[in-house]
């Protein structure tokens, strides 16, 4: 074997050797467990905090409101749609209060008249014309909006 080939072979062996050592050292342990990714990533994704707890959890304490809501058109509406995620509130209700939205715009997010909304799907009002001076909840009961406040 010629001298230069020998030298080249040595250089290549060293380069590949270093490459495999680095690859072995840097490759995470769970890599390739299920596929071309870190198997642990599945568990990390699973362990994130659940923040929207669902109406059943609200029903544990606020059963009066939940059952009252069932009498009206908001029957299928989850409490957390308007009040925000409740995971902190169910841990410590006193310090972690939920949002009680009162602005007209908040109701308008669903009920503002819009050509893309079908009348069959949702009751709509034109917020720019309908009783502009007042808040929606001055007249309507939020949990059962076809009933009016005295």
């Amino acid at each position: 074997m010629p001298q230069q080939i020998k030298k080249l072979l040595i250089v290549f062996t060293i380069i590949f050797g270093i490459f495999f050592i680095i690859k072995y050292a840097l490759k995470p342990k769970s890599f390739g467990e299920f596929g071309h990714y870190r198997g642990l990533a599945i568990i990390e994704n699973e362990n994130k905090q659940v923040k929207y707890v669902g109406t059943e959890a609200c029903n544990d304490c606020h059963d009066d409101i939940v059952s009252y809501k069932k009498e009206g058109p908001h029957v299928n509406l989850q409490c957390e749609v308007c009040h925000g995620p409740g995971y902190l509130h169910i841990q410590d209700p006193e310090t972690n209060k939920l949002i009680i939205p009162s602005k007209r715009e908040k109701c308008g997010i669903c009920h503002q008249k819009n050509a893309a909304r079908s009348e069959n799907n949702i009751t709509q009002v034109n917020l720019k014309e309908h009783n502009v001076e007042n808040k929606c909840i001055d007249c309507h009961k939020a949990h059962n909006p076809y009933e009016f406040k005295d």
């Binding site: 923040k51 749609v81 925000g84 995620p85 949702i122």
Partner: peptide, 13 residues
């Protein structure tokens, strides 16, 4: 109905 509560809930969650 285009309320985008899905988008909001996604950001919160």
């Amino acid at each position: 109905i285009g309320c985008a509560r899905c988008a909001n809930a996604c950001k919160e969650e």
